[in-house]
Amino acid sequence: MDGGVVPTLAPALVSVEDLTVRFVTRDSTAHAVNGVTFSVRPGEVLCILGESGSGKSVTLRALMRLLPPGKTRISGSITVDGQDVLALNPAALRRLRGGLVSMIFQEPMTALDPVYTIGDQIAETVMRHKGVSKTVALARALELLELVKIPSAASRLNNYPHELSGGLRQRAMIAMALSCGPRLLLADEPTTALDATVQIQVLILLRKLQKEMGMGTIFVTHDLGVASEIADRIAVMYAGRVVEEGPVADVLANPLHPYTRGLMASTVHGQDRSRDIDAIPGSPPDLRQLPPGCAFAPRCSLAAGECLSAVPEPRFPAPGRMARCVRLGVPAFA
């Protein structure tokens, strides 16, 4: 596999600069995303890896401006295919969503409309974005269902979402997301709710379609295993910041940030049954009261005085690698 080898000359499809998202409520302000910068090239799969509260899903939703406008404060810049997403007017935003950029979710049951058949829903999207007739749109829907390998696709067109199994529903949602040939696919834990034997099928399908269609993809997951199956590069998020980024094979083989190392040690995968797992102690920080320094410092065995005073600046110890840690040279946990 091409573990992280991507054409370096292609201009970025997505570039996010210093993205900050805050949720303001009457009681408090949650600092969900705190200065995130990354870019994705066409045809590249970036996995954003993080635990709950890391800001990975919020970042993804910000890319499509899906966050509730009333209580969300977004700053920074998001450029998708040359368009400044944060400055788009509602009409341009609608063209962007589902046209240039589309999204698949964890729970297809909530993302699909329960009162329309699968065929109607896909056809509706095609008609809206391409302005074709219903007949043409339905034919396209059938093509798409075949593309995502739904068995006996023609009869499935007339099924309602609840009549499909979890795996088929997820495939139907992927078909809908691909209906207008997006250049950027956003995936929010699309395989997390699926059974193990179904998850791997959907992952392989997504990987194949992504390659065939050359889509840039941002894939949010909490699962290192899923990332290892699909990512070209991964960005590890913690408390709203990207703490480490690099080609997937390099990061998994040689994690730089203590959090990434801790996460890998915590992920149960063939550990010695007679020993405890090297778990990271403590809990993630409260996003309403982030510490002034490195947010991971309170749980980090390598933390020193300088970690507590200021948020570490990104460092680039090797080509394509980034980590926000001031103790990068320090040997790993004892």
């Binding site: 596999m1 573990g3 992280g4 193990a196 034997t197 998850q199 791997i200 992952l203 392989i204 990987r207 699962d223 290192l224 295993g225 899923v226 290892s228 199956e229 990512a231 997937v248 094979a249 998994l252 995968h269």
Partner: peptide, 13 residues
């Protein structure tokens, strides 16, 4: 069906 945890040995089928 368990993910490989190794990008060099991904599950192909």
């Amino acid at each position: 069906s368990r993910p490989s945890m190794d990008p060099a040995r991904r599950i192909e089928e």
